[in-house]
Write a protein that binds this DNA or RNA. Structure first.
Length: 357
DNA sequence: CACCCGTGGCA
DNA sequence: TTGCCAAGGGT
């Protein structure tokens, strides 16, 4: 046990938050909250799922588009799968979008269209894990639950100068965070720790001089803050190779393929193509045609490998009968429906056509 | 429990 | 250019 008592107090952080809270589309700030305004649980849930491993800057536009198109959880539950996947395209981690729909439909079917107001109830829903269940509990329902995300882990590791590497240190950091969580204003507090981690207690060059917890912070006094939290080394990413076939029919329709729900880019639209492996891919087009190389490869890095994707393009006749995929006209396909790697392939293919497309 | 699962920004 | 990082969850 770390016998040292941390003197950090939630009140000091809340005082800081009252002045420095960031404004966000899904957030009810401390002032409005004091006036009794509570955030819509649907919007809290949607924002928290979008924010999983994703930056605020990347989420903003997606959140606006989703809430404009589907203002309530019932609207979202009634949406077509392909519409939700297309709207999520580019945000990454597509299992989140699949679980988002499952969750919305479960809330409507099993909970009368209202998100459960307990951590346990929330935890039972698809796509809601320990962090998100606590976040919705605290932010939407003002329950005194402890949120532990990357920000909180970093802040706690520094406050206590804990050098045990993640993920080993996770349970201890969770316990530290729980001890600090106040009974009053748990929603504001949860967001305050995350704002602190995002703006002051940043991964590199933290601004310790203006931190509301600079006095009790052990890592600050020891000069170790910038190197915490420690993390286990990561495995190198191998390079995989593949081929994608961008076929355009005479009427302007493209030959596309819906990917299976499980695995990489599950449920998303993509171009027919080879497997992606560390060996040279087999060149097997989805339909016989005059395929030509686009002259440039799409380079893309996924979570655990680098991909170099060769692009083949072809003009296809109206009578073409491909082995795989389906033709989608402009009415059923927008380039923005594609995950980023597929959009890169599309852009390269387009550039390779003299007449553009 | 180890592994799988995206993307864009930034030093 | 490369590596690191961001409000994690599912299996």
């Amino acid at each position: 046990m770390n016998g040292e008592m941390i003197r950090a107090e939630a009140g000091d952080l809340l005082d800081w938050y009252d002045v420095h809270a960031r404004e966000m589309p899904w957030r009810v700030g401390p002032s409005a909250r004091r006036d009794g305004i509570r955030p819509d649980p649907y919007r809290v849930w949607l924002s928290e799922v979008m924010l999983q491993q994703t930056t605020v800057a990347a989420v903003r536009d997606y959140f606006h588009r989703f809430t404009a198109r589907w203002p309530t959880v019932a609207d979202l539950a009634a949406a077509a799968d392909e519409d939700v996947m297309g709207e999520w395209a580019g945000l990454g981690y597509y299992a989140r979008a699949r679980n988002l729909l499952k969750c919305a439909r479960a809330v409507v079917a099993d909970h009368g269209g209202v998100f459960p107001a307990t951590r346990e109830g929330l935890l039972s829903l698809p796509g809601i894990g320990p962090y998100t269940a606590s976040a919705i509990s605290a932010i939407a329902y003002d329950l005194p639950e402890t949120v532990v995300d990357g920000n909180v882990e970093r802040v706690m590791a520094r406050l206590h100068d804990l050098h045990v590497p993640l993920p080993t240190a996770k349970p201890e950091l969770t316990e530290m965070a729980a001890r600090l969580t106040p009974d009053a204003r748990p929603g504001d507090y949860a967001q305050a720790v995350m704002d602190l981690g995002a703006t002051i207690c940043t991964p590199k060059s933290p601004a310790c001089g203006i931190c509301p917890w600079r006095d009790p912070c052990v890592a600050r006094s020891n000069g170790t803050a910038p190197e915490l939290p420690k993390k286990l080394p990561k495995k190198p990413k191998p390079i995989r190779l593949g081929i994608a076939y961008v076929g355009r029919r005479a009427d302007g329709a493209f030959l596309l393929q819906r990917r299976p729900d499980k695995g990489l880019l599950g449920g998303m639209l993509g171009w027919p193509g080879s497997d992606w492996a560390e060996t040279v891919p087999q060149d097997t087009p989805p339909v016989a045609a005059q395929w030509r190389d686009a002259g440039a490869e799409a380079r893309h890095t996924f979570t655990h490998f680098h991909l170099r994707l060769a692009i083949r393009v072809a003009d296809l006749p109206m009578g073409a009968e491909p082995d795989t995929g389906e033709f989608l006209g402009p009415d059923r396909f927008r380039p923005s429906d594609l995950p980023t790697v597929m959009r890169k392939a599309f852009d390269l293919a387009r550039a390779s056509f003299k007449d553009g497309f």
